[in-house]
Amino acid sequence: MARPDFEELVDTFAFLDDWEERYRHVIDMGRALPPLDEAERVPATKVEGCASQVWLVPEIEGEGTAATLKFRGESDAMIVKGLIAVLQTLYNGLTVAEARDVDAQAELARLSLHDHLSSQRSNGLKAMVARIQEIAARA
Protein backbone atom coordinates (compact mmCIF):
# COMPACT_ATOMS: atom_id res chain seq x y z
CA MET A 1 0.00 0.00 0.00
CA ALA A 2 1.52 3.26 -1.10
CA ARG A 3 1.18 6.64 0.51
CA PRO A 4 -1.59 9.11 -0.39
CA ASP A 5 0.96 11.39 -2.11
CA PHE A 6 1.80 8.60 -4.44
CA GLU A 7 -1.85 7.75 -5.10
CA GLU A 8 -2.36 11.40 -5.98
CA LEU A 9 0.57 11.21 -8.39
CA VAL A 10 -0.94 8.12 -10.01
CA ASP A 11 -4.19 10.06 -10.50
CA THR A 12 -2.32 13.04 -11.97
CA PHE A 13 -0.42 10.82 -14.35
CA ALA A 14 -3.64 9.19 -15.49
CA PHE A 15 -4.63 12.58 -16.90
CA LEU A 16 -1.30 13.13 -18.62
CA ASP A 17 -1.48 10.76 -21.52
CA ASP A 18 1.23 12.37 -23.56
CA TRP A 19 4.84 11.50 -22.73
CA GLU A 20 5.97 15.10 -23.02
CA GLU A 21 3.57 16.14 -20.27
CA ARG A 22 4.63 13.27 -18.03
CA TYR A 23 8.27 14.20 -18.49
CA ARG A 24 7.49 17.82 -17.84
CA HIS A 25 5.74 16.85 -14.60
CA VAL A 26 8.63 14.64 -13.45
CA ILE A 27 11.16 17.35 -14.35
CA ASP A 28 9.13 19.94 -12.41
CA MET A 29 9.05 17.64 -9.39
CA GLY A 30 12.84 17.41 -9.67
CA ARG A 31 13.17 21.17 -9.87
CA ALA A 32 11.28 21.50 -6.59
CA LEU A 33 13.69 19.15 -4.84
CA PRO A 34 15.96 21.05 -2.41
CA PRO A 35 19.64 20.47 -3.16
CA LEU A 36 21.85 18.43 -0.86
CA ASP A 37 24.73 20.04 0.96
CA GLU A 38 28.15 19.49 -0.52
CA ALA A 39 29.04 17.43 2.58
CA GLU A 40 26.11 15.09 1.90
CA ARG A 41 27.31 14.24 -1.60
CA VAL A 42 29.90 11.71 -0.51
CA PRO A 43 30.76 8.13 -1.57
CA ALA A 44 28.61 6.70 1.25
CA THR A 45 25.47 8.34 -0.14
CA LYS A 46 26.30 7.87 -3.82
CA VAL A 47 24.23 5.30 -5.69
CA GLU A 48 26.30 3.33 -8.17
CA GLY A 49 24.71 1.81 -11.25
CA CYS A 50 23.08 4.98 -12.55
CA ALA A 51 24.14 6.58 -15.81
CA SER A 52 24.26 9.95 -14.07
CA GLN A 53 25.32 10.83 -10.53
CA VAL A 54 22.82 10.11 -7.77
CA TRP A 55 23.03 10.57 -4.01
CA LEU A 56 20.45 9.41 -1.44
CA VAL A 57 20.68 10.56 2.18
CA PRO A 58 18.60 8.43 4.61
CA GLU A 59 16.87 9.94 7.63
CA ILE A 60 15.45 7.35 9.99
CA GLU A 61 13.35 8.62 12.92
CA GLY A 62 12.72 6.26 15.79
CA GLU A 63 13.81 2.72 16.53
CA GLY A 64 13.16 -0.73 15.10
CA THR A 65 10.63 -1.58 12.42
CA ALA A 66 8.24 1.13 13.65
CA ALA A 67 10.83 3.80 12.79
CA THR A 68 9.88 6.20 9.99
CA LEU A 69 11.82 6.15 6.78
CA LYS A 70 12.71 9.34 4.99
CA PHE A 71 15.36 10.19 2.50
CA ARG A 72 16.51 13.19 0.60
CA GLY A 73 18.38 13.00 -2.67
CA GLU A 74 19.91 14.71 -5.62
CA SER A 75 21.21 14.03 -9.09
CA ASP A 76 23.06 16.03 -11.72
CA ALA A 77 20.44 14.93 -14.26
CA MET A 78 17.05 16.63 -14.09
CA ILE A 79 14.93 13.66 -15.08
CA VAL A 80 16.67 11.52 -12.47
CA LYS A 81 16.13 14.25 -9.89
CA GLY A 82 12.44 14.04 -10.76
CA LEU A 83 12.51 10.28 -10.28
CA ILE A 84 14.01 10.78 -6.82
CA ALA A 85 11.05 13.04 -6.03
CA VAL A 86 8.70 10.33 -7.34
CA LEU A 87 10.37 7.78 -5.05
CA GLN A 88 9.96 10.17 -2.13
CA THR A 89 6.21 10.22 -2.67
CA LEU A 90 6.31 6.44 -2.73
CA TYR A 91 8.40 5.91 0.41
CA ASN A 92 8.81 8.96 2.60
CA GLY A 93 6.88 8.69 5.84
CA LEU A 94 6.36 4.94 5.71
CA THR A 95 7.57 2.84 8.60
CA VAL A 96 10.60 0.75 7.93
CA ALA A 97 8.40 -2.36 8.01
CA GLU A 98 6.00 -0.87 5.46
CA ALA A 99 8.86 0.28 3.25
CA ARG A 100 10.28 -3.24 3.14
CA ASP A 101 6.94 -4.49 1.78
CA VAL A 102 6.64 -1.93 -1.03
CA ASP A 103 6.79 -3.55 -4.46
CA ALA A 104 8.40 -0.57 -6.12
CA GLN A 105 8.43 -2.03 -9.63
CA ALA A 106 4.69 -2.70 -9.48
CA GLU A 107 3.93 0.72 -7.97
CA LEU A 108 6.04 2.62 -10.48
CA ALA A 109 4.45 0.65 -13.30
CA ARG A 110 1.17 2.35 -12.30
CA LEU A 111 2.68 5.64 -13.45
CA SER A 112 3.25 4.16 -16.93
CA LEU A 113 6.56 5.92 -16.72
CA HIS A 114 8.71 2.87 -16.83
CA ASP A 115 8.11 2.37 -20.56
CA HIS A 116 9.28 5.88 -21.16
CA LEU A 117 12.61 5.44 -19.48
CA SER A 118 15.62 4.13 -21.27
CA SER A 119 16.89 0.83 -19.96
CA GLN A 120 20.00 2.51 -18.64
CA ARG A 121 17.85 4.86 -16.68
CA SER A 122 15.55 2.04 -15.62
CA ASN A 123 18.63 0.32 -14.27
CA GLY A 124 19.38 3.52 -12.41
CA LEU A 125 15.84 3.48 -11.03
CA LYS A 126 16.40 -0.11 -9.93
CA ALA A 127 19.66 0.90 -8.28
CA MET A 128 17.88 3.70 -6.40
CA VAL A 129 15.09 1.37 -5.23
CA ALA A 130 17.68 -1.21 -4.17
CA ARG A 131 19.44 1.46 -2.11
CA ILE A 132 16.20 2.49 -0.41
CA GLN A 133 15.45 -1.15 0.38
CA GLU A 134 18.96 -1.49 1.82
CA ILE A 135 18.35 1.55 3.99
CA ALA A 136 15.08 0.05 5.21
CA ALA A 137 16.70 -3.33 5.86
CA ARG A 138 19.51 -1.79 7.89
CA ALA A 139 17.25 0.39 10.02
Partner: peptide
Protein backbone atom coordinates in the same frame (compact mmCIF):
# COMPACT_ATOMS: atom_id res chain seq x y z
CA UNK B 1 20.91 25.93 -17.59
CA UNK B 2 22.44 22.69 -16.44
CA UNK B 3 20.38 20.11 -18.31
CA UNK B 4 22.44 16.94 -18.09
CA UNK B 5 23.49 15.32 -21.38
CA UNK B 6 21.63 12.20 -20.23
CA UNK B 7 18.44 14.26 -19.91
CA UNK B 8 18.97 15.63 -23.40
CA UNK B 9 19.63 12.27 -24.97
CA UNK B 10 16.58 10.78 -23.22
CA UNK B 11 14.32 13.46 -24.67
CA UNK B 12 15.97 13.23 -28.11
CA UNK B 13 15.38 9.48 -28.06
CA UNK B 14 11.66 10.10 -27.57
Amino acid sequence: GGAHPHDISTILDK
